[in-house]
């Protein structure tokens, strides 16, 4: 399967990259690790004129502790490098818990943090070959007018299928976006639009440069539970990230719960902090949160696994993760131990 003909541009600086993006608008596409973009190009999901390979931009690499005690992780940091970075592993365990569940080792050697945060949304009616989609007559997202997941609707339900995003949402991470007017900072939670087509708030002339982790959430316990059929290679069918700051008396000082792979965006379960702060473990409280989680997640028939089962797993994963955070259940091993 050949790739569509296009120019490949390899800028050395963010400024150059942004200039190329500005000049070509929607006809340019950013390439980092390639594990998501290249198969999608082969499937003709996009046909950009210009492929902008940002791997040559040094300033997008590296993990640095900044003067304000935040940690800046360059967007080009590979997933393997993220796992190998001791300071992240120890301070933000939810990140390594999520990252080690992404695809498999070969894909993680190529895939980048930025790429994982900008993944294309996925749907069984969309992530198919050109031939397959044409035989169907396309879908709402591409080449067609009908959403096969929710026919009659005018919304695309393709699913957010990244694992990093829910984990980073629980850490109140921010992102650094480079554009023609320099950098802007944005809460990661504002980056996602919950729209299968127009999935992220990234301008056509912008690129995701880094993730910034606040000191506030450092040291919080955290875990990510992922539903998938195989324990490697697979994209998530549901994901639950939970972090909690628990004091010695077992009182929750702060907590977040986020879901992935069940909605067009990764989402925080809004009630988590309000309901959990100042509380000790109780099964009733956990069940209340579980209920909030399944109210937040809205799995549809976008993948091989049924919505009923995925919803059920949101329930189990959320409960188990909260129990783990409070020490009521053995910790899921995540490579830190």
């Amino acid at each position: 399967m050949s790739l569509p003909a296009m120019r490949v541009v390899r800028p050395r600086t963010v400024e150059d990259a942004v200039r190329v993006l500005a000049a070509h608008g929607p006809e340019a596409m950013i390439l980092a690790g390639g594990t998501d973009v290249v198969p999608n190009l082969q499937m003709r999901l996009f046909a950009p004129r210009v492929l902008l390979d940002i791997k040559g931009i040094g300033s997008l690499r590296g993990v640095v502790r900044q003067p304000d005690e935040t940690i800046r992780v360059g967007a080009l940091t590979t997933l393997t490098q993220l796992l190998a970075t001791e300071s992240l592993r120890l301070r933000y365990p939810v990140i390594s818990s999520a990252v080690r569940s992404i695809a498999g080792p070969l894909q993680r050697n190529m895939g980048t943090l930025g790429g994982n945060l900008c993944l294309e949304t996925r749907c069984r009616w969309y992530n198919q070959s050109d031939f397959w989609r044409k035989s169907l007559g396309g879908c709402l997202k591409k080449e067609g007018t009908i959403c096969h997941v929710a026919p009659g609707g005018d919304r695309c339900w393709a699913v957010w299928s990244g694992d990093c995003a829910p984990a980073l949402l629980t850490l109140d991470a921010e992102i650094e976006i480079a554009g023609p007017n320099g950098n802007r900072r944005l809460a990661l939670s504002s980056f996602y639009r919950n729209d299968g087509i127009n999935r992220i708030a990234l301008g056509g002339d912008e690129l995701l440069a880094a993730v910034v982790l606040p000191p506030r959430t450092a040291g919080w316990r955290g875990v990510y539970h992922k539903l998938r059929i195989r324990n490697s290679i697979d994209y998530p069918l549901a994901g639950v990230a939970v972090v909690m700051n628990v004091d010695e008396q077992g009182v929750c000082r702060d907590a977040r719960v986020a879901l992935g792979a069940v909605n067009p965006a990764p989402v925080l379960v809004k009630q988590a902090a309000d309901w959990l702060i100042g509380k000790k473990y109780s099964p009733e409280l956990v069940e209340r949160l579980v209920h909030a989680a399944i109210q937040t997640g809205k799995p549809l028939t976008t993948s091989a696994s049924s919505p009923v089962y995925r919803r059920e797993m949101l329930r189990v994963f959320t409960r188990r993760a909260l129990e783990e955070m409070w020490g009521m259940r053995p910790r899921t091993p995540n490579g830190n131990d």
Partner: peptide
């Protein structure tokens, strides 16, 4: 779709999938 590993090569010593690596990059 970069999911079988049969194309793996070493890039500066790191195993990667040659099927999703654009050669000119």
């Amino acid at each position: 779709d970069s999911s079988c590993g049969a194309c793996a090569v070493l890039a500066d010593g790191v195993p990667i999938l040659a099927c999703v690596a654009i050669a000119s990059c």
